[in-house]
Structures are given as C-alpha cells and as structure tokens.
Design a protein around this nucleic acid. Structure first.
Lengths: 231, 231
DNA sequence: GGCTTTCGCTACGAGTCGTAGCGTAATGGC
DNA sequence: GCCATTACGCTACGACTCGTAGCGAAAGCC
C-alpha cells in the first residue's frame, strides 16, 4: 500500500494512527481545495504530522489520493434484495452515493486522468478500487445464475468479456451522469437505467445476425423510456 | 471562447494564427507531458508566443486545455449507414478513436475532474464538448424515428430524460472502457455494446411492472454476449 | 542497554505561477 | 497620413510549492 524500505522487521513501527489521520486529512483537503490546489504540505499540517513523514510513505500526490479515495469505495457491498434487478439497483445506488461526495468526484477523476500516463498508478487504481467493484459484478452474476435469472455461461472467455462490458456500462454510466452531466443518479434514474440494461442483457435476439434489426419490433408501442406509468 | 476585454472594436486585432498555434501546442504538450506536468510557459514556448499572451486570452490551464480538446471532438459527426444500429456503431467508433488519443484522455478527464469544483469550467465543457455530442444523439434518434425504427415520443420531458440516459450510457461506457479498464473500444466491443443498448431500448417489457422479470425469458439460450459467431 | 527505524523539525535549491512594466507592432477612425 | 487604441514580445519580480537532506529525539525488538 505504501512505500516500504527494504527490511521492516525491527525498529520503531510506523504509526497506524498517522495513516488514518493522513488519509482523512487528504479527503478533507480534497473537499475544501479540490485536486489541483491540494498540497502535501497542507495535508501534513491537517493530519498533524511532518511533511517528511508523508514523503516517506507515499511517492506523491497521486498515490496518496488514490489510497484516500479507495477507502471510500471499500464500503461498497452487494445487497441481497431477492432479484437481479433489485440487486443491481441497490449496488448502483450505493455507488452513486459514494460518487456524489466531493472528495470522491475530484479525487477519483483526477487520479484516473493521471493514470493515463502512469502505468504504476493505473495498476494501483485497478487493484484497490476497480477490481473490488468488478468482483461485485461477478458476485451478482453468480447469484442471478443460481436463481435462474441468467443462463450459465459456457465459454469462460466469453463470460469474462460480458462481465467487462457490464462493468464498463454500469460504472461508466453512473460516473458520466454524476460528473459530466452533473445530475444526481437518483432512484428514478437508476430504475430507468437498470431496466434498459437488464432488457439488453436478457432479451433474445430474433435472428442471430450480428446486427439486430430494430425493425423486428416494427413501430412497437413501447420505445425507449416509454414507461406506461411511473413506479 | 476566450477572455474579452470590454470593447474590441478598434486597435490591433488578435492574431488568429496565434490561437491555432497555441491550441496545437497545448495538445502537443498534453501528449508529451500529460496534464500535471504541463505548464503555460512551456506551451507558450512551443507555440512561439510570449507567456503573457496566453494569460491575456485564457484564465488558466483549465480553460486552455478544454478549448484545445474541444477542437478534437469537433470532428465528430453522425454517419448515415442505413440503420440505427449501424449509425450508433459508427459514431461510437469515432468517439472511441478520438478518446484513444493521449491528448484527449488526460486532457478531458483532468478538466472534468477540475470542473467538479468550478461551475464556470463545467459550463465551458458542456457548451463546447458535451452538448454537441448530445446533439448527435438527438439527430440519430430523429433519424431512427423517421425510419420507423423507434416510435415517436409523446411526452417531451420523457423524451429528454431518455436522451440523457442514452447519452450517459454511451459516452460513459466508452470513456470507462478506454480510461479505467484501459482496453480498446474496438469494433468487436462496440458491436457487443450496441447490441445490448439497442435491445434494452427497443425490447418490450412483458408485464408493465417497474422491475422487469428476467425469468420471463426462462433460461433462454442466448445469455448476455452470447454471440453465435463473430462477424 | 544497544540496535534499528521512525518521527518532527528546519533549511535549502529548483521550479512554476501570475502579474507588472515597458517599448513596439498592427489596426480603425478622422 | 496621423492618432488613439489594442495586441504583442520581452524582462523581471515576489510568492508559492516541490522534494530532499540533515539533525536530534523517540519508540520499539533483541
């Protein structure tokens, strides 16, 4: 998680309290200052530690913020609401709630932006934030298959591709809604989104063409978002 | 687009060549240095202008990068390939191609991250990048309705919500795939994604419940991503 | 008690920021 | 053609942050 000098068996141990204080101070600074105006000296002052202590544990601002934000997403868990649709809605609402916090918004996006030029940082984000989220998709998928809501996947490679697709669609849509469109991913939006996603995943294609002919429906009554009545 | 001093009727006009040189230099610096290491002094040197000229036209790094990246996305247009599915695939592939460029990756994401704490910057991004993209969704939707592939939308408010949902799903998924998962949004992926999206948009729900019962399909043969054969 | 490592503190050179000031260049109005 | 007005290039500047080095003191394991 942090920088480790070669042998750490003996000597004075690192203060665990300092770790939590530093990460909390980082989130606090993210809220008040945002990414660009956040300085390590300021974080150190807030945490009540020396600036050198920060540099001894983290390589720089990027790594520190990733760890601070990762703790937020560690709260994510998959609820068991009885159906696949309800499970998806539940976890997406949790994800949206975390992403609505200002420290998550600015911190995560800036870290992702930096990761486009820093492979080590990208790997750190993947291991501490992305992969746990993807595990939730896998878990939900397995649960749905056990319920009979989704057919078991024969080809494991194909299954992995499907999970990746679902993950990109779900996380991407929530992030884009929250950060770019800057509108809340509330229950109504999540319900509409889940409906589209589940229909897309479970609907059988008429002809086995690579491009599904939309006119197989003709001018069917229920177009996109054509909710008969709300709730 | 830039900073305008009160009256600009008389006096020496601003060099248009400088504008294009500055924006090109900004993209070049984004490629070589990334967002965090990009400095306005460096951009000025690359563009062959004085640093003060940059500060006279743009308020800061954020605004400059947004304008530089916006020119990239200005190339986007909606092709007419004859069907809604093909149109979507075409425009998504264009979007993915632009987003694959390093200057678009780091620049756009960093700007979005900063926009979480700067309303003016968010508005600038919306006006110059997001809204034109959303117009493509509107145009594609209108074209599909003219073809009869999608039913005309009665309630305009509902239609706006649907367009917003589609936009967040499409743009969010491509961005997440490219930046977070760090894998290419190639033709195969776009085809799978378009298939899920279109099925989700056009499939009719069996019962008009708010939560569609996935088992209406039973254990149908074609699960998510169950492509019979490629191409 | 001795060894090892961490911690807090201070100080430092290097780099960037954003601005001010000045003289010069390029237009439009008269 | 002359003048007011604005843009431009250049230099210099104080303020700030960065990341590191060096020191003495503190806190654990043997």
């Amino acid at each position: 998680m942090q920088i480790r000098t070669p042998a750490c068996r003996t000597g004075r141990p690192r203060s665990a309290a300092a770790d939590t204080a530093i990460l909390a101070a980082t989130r606090e600074a993210l809220v008040e200052l945002g990414w660009s105006k956040l300085t390590l000296g300021d974080v150190a002052t807030r945490a009540g530690v020396a600036k050198t202590t920060l540099y001894r544990r983290w390589a720089g601002k990027n790594e520190l913020v990733v760890d601070a934000v990762a703790e937020l997403f560690g709260e994510l868990e998959l609820p068991d609401r009885g159906s696949l649709a309800a499970d998806i809605e539940g976890v997406v609402l949790q994800f949206a709630a975390i992403l609505a916090r200002p420290e998550a918004k600015s911190g995560l996006m800036a870290a992702v932006a930096e990761s486009t030029r820093d492979d080590a940082l990208r790997e750190r984000i993947r291991a501490s934030i992305v992969d746990p989220q993807k595990d939730l998709v896998l878990e939900g998928r397995a649960r749905a298959q056990a319920r009979g809501e989704l057919p078991p996947q024969a080809d494991p490679a194909e299954a992995a591709r499907t999970v990746d697709l679902i993950f990109d669609v779900v996380a991407g849509a929530v992030v884009h809604r929250t950060l770019v469109s800057a509108e809340p991913a509330d229950e109504e939006w999540v319900r509409s989104f889940t409906r589209v996603l589940l229909l897309g995943l479970t609907a059988t294609t008429g002809p086995p063409d690579d491009l599904p002919d939309a006119d197989a429906e003709g001018g069917a009554r229920s177009g996109p978002g054509g909710e008969p009545a709300d709730t």
